[in-house]
Amino acid sequence: MYAVRVGLQKFGIKHNFEIESIIRLYARWIREGKLSVSSDWNKDLGITFTLQDPCQLVRKSFGDPVAEDLRFVAKSVVGEEHLIEMYPNKSNNYCCGGGGGYLQSGYTEERRAYGAIKLKQILDTGADYCIAPCHNCHSQIHDLIHHAGKDIPVVHLWTLICLSMGILGENERGYLEERLAELGL
């Protein structure tokens, strides 16, 4: 998104559309009652989640307001008491090391060294799962956790939204792993 948003400005490209992030729409749709999510499924389970603020979405594009939307959505689907924050966060969040082309750069050892701060932040929360609503963050955090020999699944927000509404199909649970693999089927 950053590449398009800034590219349009940088190269003076005339266009008739606006740029939107699905994260902001999730929040709006939940507020408008169009997306009837619930965190009831997690009341007794008590599975905990932490949340990665993608740099390109938050610090580099829409700032703290979208970080608040992100939290509103996450809390709505997993329960406020089950969301454990990393610090610092929002616009002051640490990059995970998945951006800037790092994943394709061949500098694997450096990429993991870069990600050490993020890995520590995640482990410090003690959360069972990590929500990463960005593909590069998702891949990088998955790799960091796996490489550290830890078991903290990384999930997209769409998976949790559908899980909370009881509409997540059997094949759509690739990232949920054992604890949630069967829930609501």
Partner: peptide, 23 residues
């Protein structure tokens, strides 16, 4: 620039109001 121009044109050619990112 080539990539962004191609994407922007694609959205405008379809007359869509929003370029929606999944992230």
């Amino acid at each position: 620039e080539t990539v962004v121009r191609n994407k922007a044109k694609a959205v405008d050619d379809l007359g869509c109001k929003y370029w929606l990112n999944t992230e």
